[in-house]
Amino acid sequence: MKIHIPNSAFLGNIDPFLRNFGTSNPDTLEITANKQWISIHPMVIAMIAALGLSLKPKQVHCETMEARSKHYLKRMGLFDFLKIDSGIEITEHESAGRFIPLKQITNSEKLTEFITEVVPLLHLSPKHTEPIRYILSELMRNVFEHAVSKIGVIMCAQYYKKSNTIRIGIIDRGVGILNTISALHKAKTDLEAIRLALTPGITGTTKRIGGTDYNAGAGLFFIKSIATVNKDFFVIYSGNGMYKLLKADNKKSVRLHADPFKDKHSKGENFPYWQGTAVGIDINLDSTEEFSLLLDLIRKSYSKAVKEQRKAYYKAKFI
């Protein structure tokens, strides 16, 4: 596998980074990087860490980093995850209030511990804490329930003062969304499966709309809705498929669609194959709605969407 860390890769311009990911020779990982400056989204760092975790250190080849911002990768813990000596020396400053370095979380109990102990370190106001811990909990719990990821879930997050935004990456190397969804629903491609996974009421655990006692098929719809209402980016990449919720126009009123393809988005189904699922989300703290107002919007659209799903699901077949 080959991965090149570019000069810039955030959710808005992440497509070239994903398209450059080389999937041949899965027993080795070759990492190269821009020589001047590296400025990348936590999703990118978490993806590289997840790739490295699946290999032994001797299978990972990382060129000597020259970019002036190389210390950032070191501070986020990337080289520790890859178990390689980067030769980069840094003085570690307190991470609290600025970032969550790479974490590997392997089960439900450890997730609860993480949410309880780590999220407060971001020093956010209650208004901002609520959506962020909500997103972290739901996305990571999804991995434990559906992904069958041997490495569990890899995450990291960074606060960007200039844009007052928290950027989060959550990655697994499990079976992928298509594998989970197509066991019970009609999906032939990764992108079709991503579309269904984002649709309210559809879960990989039952054909029944509305889910089981344990799964409602609502988690990803909620996350997408939070991003939609706050006019933030949200990317989900699994297999060869990638869906990106684009920032909505600030002047337009928000509509929450059951079908993610009706939201302002971009998508592709011929990306290099990612074993598992990679998710990136940005939360702009300037535009964060009060969480209860946001939930009220979701409530108004959700039941309607489930009813429509039911209607669609049980249509009579006339031949």
Binding site: E130, P200, G201, I209, G210, A216, A218, F291, S292, L295, D296, I298, R299, Y302, S303, K304, V306, K307, R310
Partner: peptide, 20 residues
């Protein structure tokens, strides 16, 4: 229940009734 918790409960109560 505070406002957020009330909203979440209402969402689940609403969609469960819509789905049954």
């Amino acid at each position: 229940c505070n406002k957020s918790v009330q909203e979440i409960i209402n969402i689940v109560v609403d969609y469960m009734q819509a789905a049954t």
